[in-house]
Design a protein around this nucleic acid. Structure first.
Lengths: 263, 263
DNA sequence: TGCTAAATCTCGAAC
DNA sequence: GTTCGAGGTTTAGCA
């Protein structure tokens, strides 16, 4: 059960004490207050005073949110070390990180609300229909691409990187498949081309290259044709459906005797 | 001055009323509670129950944070429409977005804390040392690249895209400069090569290509040499310093009579 | 509106 | 640790 400790409009020294306690206990900390922020590291930045929401998580990550915008205006990835002090300008919180060396320094002139949170969260998270899901779906049902296609391996190492799927078509020719979950552009075509070239050298036989994506960018079409590559439209949604079907089928096999219906 | 309204451990119907009021007034809303989350749109996802922090901003953006991880586990970009209801499973908040059509549905079984925030934030934000800053710095001080370099234009249109800086060296040869803020890889080399080839055709004279970046990727070096291109190491930090100096100088020109010292 | 390139990208996996 | 590719990337700048 979650525990919540609240300090409304605390004095800065009260807030400092609570903040230090929260950091020591690795709690999630939320601070709402008026602050300025300085950042120095990969780049550098300066944020003039205003009301913001500061969020520190158990993993030592930090984010500073303005009242608008999806992304934090300043942040620090997980693994920071935090320093706190009462400076003449206000309550200072510094998040320091190494590799790369950088820091965010927040100076609060006023704290409206400080909360220490002990959150319990072990819920599983599942995301469907990523590029990997598309790959798994094609491996499950290669006929999605064309009849008679037989996968040999997947994630085959080829000089410039990894081939998504490596297969043989119904006429015995080698096939390299490059998958994109979104519109495939020139870059995807060139990537596939590189793989095909590399495999042609290796195999010394004809190698087909098929670009699999929900859509082909306008400029990519011409390049694709000129490089003698092919395109097969496949939507992530269709792939998710195939995986869902396969999952249900697998479950049914284990859970229900043949002939019995399940809902 | 910021206003903060707090509901600690509210009943779900109390929370619903406050939530609707906050949404209607376009306030920043923070909800800490136990919830599950469903998402459907560009992809789809499901998050099993646990304690999370939900943040709704003035611009209609939404994010769901777990107690760890820099990124929100689920989110919705600015411009959402929110729907709320008391469902048998708990308090439901749905954030709907069009283009692309997608929604996030959060169902709270328990709310530990709900806050409505009227935040005042008009502080300026300045970020230094982006790729554009590097370009401006080089235009201000072309000697960063080599002595005697004279820029002609910047962002010159050339068939494959835009040349960062187009210049002439001390011997009158044309120079194409491609800038990268981070390690430049093979792609940057090829990009520069394309520009040089394109300009050689256009100008029918020798064209030098210089890749400017803080670092050169291992594989890129060989390609660079084989394509007869050059590399000049320039750090974003140095560029930021040059811009800072130039800015101070510009201010000094306006603010102080010649010969007077300022600190 | 749609495309392109950059980001303090983040995140994860492989070497 | 570094590198490389994917992301519900987001964001900003333009055609």
């Amino acid at each position: 059960m979650a525990e919540v400790e609240l300090l409304k409009e605390p004095e800065l020294n009260e807030a400092l004490e609570a903040l230090r306690r929260g950091l020591a206990k690795r709690l999630v900390i939320l601070i709402i207050g008026c602050c300025n922020v300085h950042y120095k590291g990969r780049a550098s930045s300066k944020l003039e005073p205003g009301d913001r929401i500061v969020l520190i998580k158990e993993d030592g990550s930090l984010q500073v949110h303005r009242p608008y915008g999806y992304e934090p205006v300043n942040w620090q990835p997980p693994g920071c070390v935090f320093h706190t002090e009462l400076h003449e300008e206000g309550l200072r919180l510094v998040a320091v990180r190494h590799t790369p060396k950088e820091h965010v320094r927040i100076t609060f002139s006023k704290i409206h609300l400080l909360t220490l949170l002990n959150l319990v969260d072990s819920g599983a998270f599942a995301l469907h229909a990523t590029e990997e899901d598309m790959q798994r779906a094609i491996l499950l049902e290669p006929s999605l691409i064309e009849p008679g296609l037989k996968p040999i391996t997947y994630e085959k190492r080829v000089e410039p990187g990894f081939v998504d799927i490596y297969a043989r078509d119904r006429e015995g020719r080698l096939v390299v498949i490059e998958i994109k979950r979104k519109t495939a552009g020139r870059d995807a075509v060139l990537q596939l081309h590189k793989y095909v070239q590399s495999l042609k050298k290796e195999a010394k036989t004809p190698v087909r290259g098929i670009l699999v994506a929900p859509k082909l960018a306008k400029g990519a079409q011409k390049l694709l044709v000129s490089l003698n590559l092919e395109y097969k439209r496949v939507s992530p949604k269709k792939c998710a459906e195939i995986l869902e079907r396969a999952k249900r089928k697998a479950l049914t096999q284990y859970m229900a005797p043949a002939g019995e219906e399940r809902f």
